[in-house]
């Protein structure tokens, strides 16, 4: 750990990200990535830890309630000042909110009590196919079609593609800076998540989540 980060050394020491996340393995193992991140300065290391913990947290867990998500989101928004980190978190939360709304509407449930900028908007446009968000989020219709066709893997691919493309586009504007490292980590996480996907396990987990949602809805009704 050092006082300031040598961005040139750190970024040059990281292997190139593939053009697509649909690859067989991550460009650098988690252990080696963590070793390289030891080149970060104190302040940057603190921010990177927050981003990494968010990205890890962002992987859906079945035992997490809406209140947990909302409180974690509030905590992050109050503790993070870096605009790019806020953008990464907000983008992920927006995608989660919209996807959650699509799934809940498909199941005939109420709009989600989620967090982010689109909660009220979704409630106001609950009956519209794309929640009146097609212009800002062209992917909604594609995800909705995949959901209706019961293709969870394709849904996941579509969602990751949206996020991946956004990080790639943003990364084009940064060279040898802290933002480059943040966007590298965000993309690494997508590749890692994709390479860990197992369709059969995913299908079982989806069924479990569905059953859990339906049973909890039955309890509250």
């Amino acid at each position: 750990m050092t006082a300031s980060t040598n961005y040139y050394s750190l970024i040059a020491s990281l292997p190139h990200m593939p053009r697509s996340f649909d690859v067989e393995r991550v460009p650098i193992s988690k252990i080696r990535l963590q070793q390289r991140l030891k080149m970060l300065g104190d302040k940057d290391e603190c921010v990177v830890e927050k981003v990494q913990s968010f990205l890890l947290w962002d992987r859906q867990q079945s035992d997490r309630t809406d209140e947990d998500v909302a409180s974690e989101y509030e905590r992050l928004m109050h503790s993070i000042t870096n605009p790019l980190v806020c953008d990464i978190i907000n983008h992920r939360m927006d995608i989660r909110t919209i996807t959650c709304a699509l799934r809940r509407r498909r199941l005939g449930l109420e709009p989600p009590a989620a967090v982010g900028q689109y909660v009220k908007h979704i409630r106001a446009h609950w009956q519209q196919p794309d929640f009146h968000l097609a212009r800002e989020h062209a992917w909604i219709s594609r995800v909705r079609e995949r959901l209706e066709a019961n293709q969870p893997l394709e849904v996941e691919r579509e969602l990751l593609t949206v996020t991946w493309n956004r990080w790639v586009k943003l990364a084009d504007g940064f060279h040898f800076s802290f933002e480059t490292i943040l966007l590298y980590l965000a993309r690494w996480e997508i590749v890692d998540r994709w390479t860990r996907l197992d369709e059969s396990v995913g299908r079982k987990r989806f069924d479990d989540l569905l059953a859990q949602t339906l049973s909890s809805d039955g309890d509250t009704a």
Partner: peptide
């Protein structure tokens, strides 16, 4: 610095 990093 970039060269040193790339050596890794």
């Amino acid at each position: 610095q970039a060269a040193s990093g790339a050596l890794l």
